[in-house]
Design a protein around this nucleic acid. Structure first.
Length: 948
DNA sequence: GTGGGCCCGTAC
DNA sequence: GACGTACGGGCCCACG
């Protein structure tokens, strides 16, 4: 085999002519070997599929360039970018099936290789690609050569196979996950020493490279064997001693293991002698870099070029994905503080004539139903923003607002325009639906303004929701995160302005100049985020539609629900609390008696010691961290062998109800309104659902009789009723629709009890003859399927054997074959596109869908199957909420007060029940046109419990 | 004191 | 390892 080393063609040979010899203190010098291929793959799968303005894919490119920048920040004496060359390698010759299972490289990835090499070369970084040799082998060879010269070697890679090279003086770093790997880390990660990694990989094999290894032998088994027999040869020598199925599997695999070992061994003797020290950083080609950065919208890089700054430290190189906005020049910033009537007039004029007005409120807290308005900021163009302080106080005023009376010289508040006058002048603008507004999490500002008598209208955009719809999982959607990601901009942090801990101030105590800088920036950045995100959404009609027709119209609806709040019977909860308290004390005393001493029943750690160490009970389950579990399932399993587990179970049930619900809810009653106002989060759930917090009203108990009593405390005012309307089996109906399975469609169209119908099919009995156990099993299958559950999980759920569960599932799929097709198709779509979507086009990206780690990938596949159903259900109820809210507009006899994923709850005046019920059922059942009817069940009562 | 990880449990 | 999506309480430890 002929190996020919050559420099990549586009690389200008500066580094090859400048040969630097290791000097006296060579032990201190450092070589960074960059595994370019692994990063390109990793970044491609990990990052959203970004494109530049021309539609060229750039996602992986950014990952690689960012990684490179952090390598440069370490200022190594030597570095080289190693990349695979195309064409077969010696491994293919040894083993024709090598990597035969790999799908061809996606076009979007292939298209990024040349740009990547161009940028690397323009940065002055030496590139090494050698025909017929994989990057791993080049890296292995260079690493050992450098090591022999006492040069510290850092291999920058996303590929853990390279762990076999680790030893003192050679370590791995993965800049995408911010992890480094030395001897100890290899030991911790794999459970074997670095010098055993080759044997380890030979045993486990590698499905993505089509290296067989020992079937059924995973990392755990391999590590166990190697701990016992030290090496692969040791394992082979003792193959006869290993018992069971896995032993047979090993003995069958023996003939192939030598080949496996050859394939996984990274070569360290590729002929490259003498080149290690020639890899030094050359001069960057600034013109070329400028052209490349511009073409691929790499703003951070451009800024560095323009600003003539050195490569920043790794921590500062946050990835800045492509933004189609061509203007990359720094924005000229002019913020003004409005404290005089003339200035206010100027800004009112600007605001009136702006095509889009960004608005942000500053307040004294996070609770939009209690916080006080402190000021308002506006932005009319990038960099052009103002802050209007309204309720700032003297900075010396104590945070709790109490005046002790000892200091009559309380400072005077800074000069500000009178709040009421400013609000009156702003009102016509803010309430004019024709003037388009923009916010970041504008629901909050809506709620605040509403409490000051301003009904914000004409809300056209919300940058938080733009980001959420563009990619729900790429980032959190708070302004700081978004500014960093989409603008490459570090915002002033709220905490830096107000301080934290005991010294934290209210925003009203911040001096006006500081406040103005912070608040104006908020409005300004909101506007700039919109300019970065909106072109992206516009370019994807389906996403734009979800944003325009679902998320944005929902904002005022949710604001209305939050402001309305729910009436709580505090006395009822107090009664329940005290009753629970008595029973909890009794159970606690009994539990202590059984244990023989007092201990904290709330402490899983102490409980575990009592149960498993002192009483010697069997620990049947482990927590994810390997501790003996004391969860419900684990306690249930040992409840027959000792009285204590049952006592704990009973205690837990009651303690949960008391601490989370009966004690907490009364504390959440707003003193001004006398009601409980939850917050609904529109950007929190990947699938498109809402979530609720402070308090969470979406997990109020209902399943047990004890828990259900809590719902009696959710009441209607005198003369009013609670009406609860919920979708019947909405996710299963969506599964029927999306899969178009004839059997499932027929069951729903006929209005059958779907679990009963499923049971009849699966167990082959007439519908009338289905037993309650059979129905229960069918229900578990139906639900489990939507969560991607395996036979193992079903078995556990039902308490039957795994074999039996598997039989149920195959019977199910035999009867409903289109369901299996649909799920397979969904997984394929996820593989191909990197995302799945709902019926209405909402997307969920699944970065882990191509992960090599089985667990991660399997998790992503389950999420992929679940998301279209859960997400479509979320879309449907959101559409229904918008319709219902439109119908309720202007009525004073009914209000929407809660959403619980598939249920809407209303307060309805007794005389309006019939009309409201008809309208709600109509809106909900017509919120989507599916192949099956959307059935809505309605209940009415004096409280939420009775309304079910 | 507080922030965060862990364990556990509630909902759909 | 094995069921998707959330929020939250109590414990407990690290940190300042």
């Amino acid at each position: 085999m002929v190996l020919q080393a050559r420099a990549e063609h586009s690389y200008k040979c500066a580094s090859f002519v400048t040969v630097v010899r290791p000097c006296e203190n060579a032990a201190m010098s450092k070589l960074i070997l960059i595994d370019g291929s692994s990063y390109l793959y990793r970044a491609f799968h990990a990052l959203p599929p970004l494109t530049n303005a021309q539609g060229e894919p750039t996602g992986a490119l950014f990952g690689v360039v960012n990684m490179l920048r952090s390598a440069l920040a370490a200022r190594p004496e030597y570095l080289v970018f190693v990349s695979d060359a195309s064409g077969p390698t010696f491994r293919h010759q040894q083993y024709p099936q090598y990597k035969a299972q790999r799908p061809p490289m996606p076009d979007d990835l292939r298209a990024q290789i040349q740009p990547m090499l161009d940028i690397v070369a323009a940065l002055g970084v030496p590139i090494l690609r050698i025909a017929g040799v994989e990057a791993d082998d080049v890296i292995g060879t260079l690493a050992l050569q450098a090591h022999a010269h006492d040069i510290e070697v850092i291999i920058s890679t996303g590929d853990k196979d390279l762990a076999q090279l680790v030893r003192p003086g050679i370590s791995l770093v993965n800049t995408m996950t911010q992890t480094t790997m030395d001897d100890a880390a290899v030991m911790a990660k794999f459970g074997v020493r670095p010098d055993q990694i080759i044997d380890f990989l030979s045993l486990t094999g590698d499905t993505s490279d089509n290296i067989p290894g020992v079937p059924k032998c995973g990392p755990k088994t391999a590590a166990k064997w190697l701990a016992e027999y030290q090496s692969l040869d040791g394992v082979i020598a003792h193959a006869g001693d290993i018992k069971g199925k896995i032993g047979e599997s090993l003995r069958e695999a023996l003939p192939g293991l030598a080949l496996s070992r050859q394939l996984v061994t990274i070569k360290t003797d590729v002929p490259l002698d003498g080149v290690v020290t020639s890899f030094v950083l050359g001069q960057p080609d600034r013109d070329r870099l400028h052209a490349l950065y511009t073409r691929y919208d790499f703003k951070q890089g451009l800024r560095e070029l323009d600003g003539d700054v050195a490569m920043p430290a790794a921590a500062e190189t946050a990835s800045a994905p492509a933004s189609p906005s061509p203007a990359s020049a720094p924005v000229k910033v002019q913020y003004s503080l409005v404290t005089r009537p003339e200035t206010l007039q100027t800004w009112l004029d600007k605001a009136r004539t702006a095509s889009l007005l960004a608005i942000d409120t500053e307040t004294t807290g996070l609770d939009s139903m209690q916080a006080e308005l402190v000021g308002i900021s506006l932005a009319v163009a990038p960099g052009e923003a103002c802050y209007i302080p309204l309720a700032h106080v003297d900075p010396q005023t104590p945070a709790d607002g109490l005046q002790l009376g000892l200091e009559p010289e309380a400072g005077r508040p800074p000069e500000q325009l009178p709040m009421q006058e400013v609000l009156d002048q702003l009102r016509p603008l803010l309430e004019n639906p024709e003037l388009a507004k923009l916010g970041q999490h504008a629901k909050y500002d809506m709620n605040i303004l509403s409490r000051y008598g301003i009904r914000l209208q004409g809300l056209r955009h919300d940058s938080m929701l733009e980001s959420y719809i563009w990619n729900a999982t790429a980032t959190r959607h708070d302004m700081d995160s978004l500014a960093r990601l989409y603008l490459g901009h570090d915002t002033v942090k709220f905490e830096d302005v107000v301080g934290k801990g005991a010294k934290q101030k209210l925003f009203s105590q911040i001096d006006l100049d500081t406040a103005s800088r912070y608040a104006s920036e908020d409005a300004d950045i909101t506007l700039r985020l919109h300019q970065a995100l909106w072109p992206k959404l516009e370019s994807e009609p389906a996403l734009r539609k979800v944003y325009d027709e679902i998320e944005m119209p929902l904002v005022p609806v949710l604001a209305g629900i939050e402001q309305q709040g729910v009436l709580i019977d505090v006395e009822e909860l107090r009664r329940q609390s005290s009753e629970l308290g008595k029973r909890i004390l009794e159970l606690q005393a009994k539990a202590h008696a059984e244990a023989g001493h007092a201990f904290n029943l709330d402490s899983p750690k102490q409980l575990q010691a009592v149960l498993f160490d002192e009483l010697g009970l069997d620990a049947k389950l482990k927590t994810p961290k390997g501790q003996p579990s004391t969860n419900e399932e684990a306690l249930e399993a040992i409840a027959d062998s000792h009285p204590l587990p049952r006592l704990i179970l009973d205690y837990r049930g009651l303690a949960k109800l008391r601490s989370t619900y009966t004690e907490k809810l009364p504390q959440m009653v707003n003193p001004h309104t006398g009601r409980v106002h939850t917050s609904y989060h529109q950007g929190a759930v990947a699938t498109g659902r809402l979530s609720s917090s402070d308090p969470n009203l979406q997990n109020i108990p209902v399943r047990t009789r004890e828990g259900r009593r809590i719902r009696k405390a959710f009441i209607a005012p005198d003369g009013w009723r609670i009406m609860a309307a919920d979708y019947s089996q909405i996710e299963l109906r969506i599964m029927a629709h999306l899969s178009a399975d004839p059997g499932l469609l027929a069951a729903f169209k006929a209005g059958e009890d779907v679990h009963r119908a499923t049971a009849a099919e699966v167990f082959g009995v007439p519908v009338e003859a289905v037993s309650s156990d059979q129905r229960r099993a069918a229900k578990a299958i139906n639900f489990g399927l939507m969560y991607g559950m395996s036979a193992f999980g079903l078995a556990r759920q039902l308490g039957v054997g795994q074999r039996e569960a598997a039989d149920y599932m195959s019977a199910y799929f035999a009867r409903y074959p289109a369901v299996r097709d649909f799920m397979d198709r969904t997984r394929q779509d996820a593989q191909r596109d990197g995302y799945v979507q709902t019926l209405f086009g909402r997307r969920l990206y699944l970065p882990n869908i191509k992960a090599r780690q089985q667990g991660l990938r399997a998790g992503a596949e389950r999420a992929a199957v679940n998301a279209p159903m859960q997400g479509t259900a979320a879309d449907i109820i959101k559409r229904a909420m918008i319709k219902v809210a439109a119908w309720l507009q202007g009525r004073d006899d009914a209000r929407m007060i809660m959403q619980v994923h598939d249920e809407l709850v209303f307060e309805v005046r007794a005389d309006a029940i019939e009309a409201v019920q008809a309208a709600v059922v109509e809106a909900m059942s017509q919120a989507a046109q599916l192949e099956v009817p959307l059935v809505v069940d309605v209940g009415i009562g004096a409280n939420w419990d009775e309304a079910h």
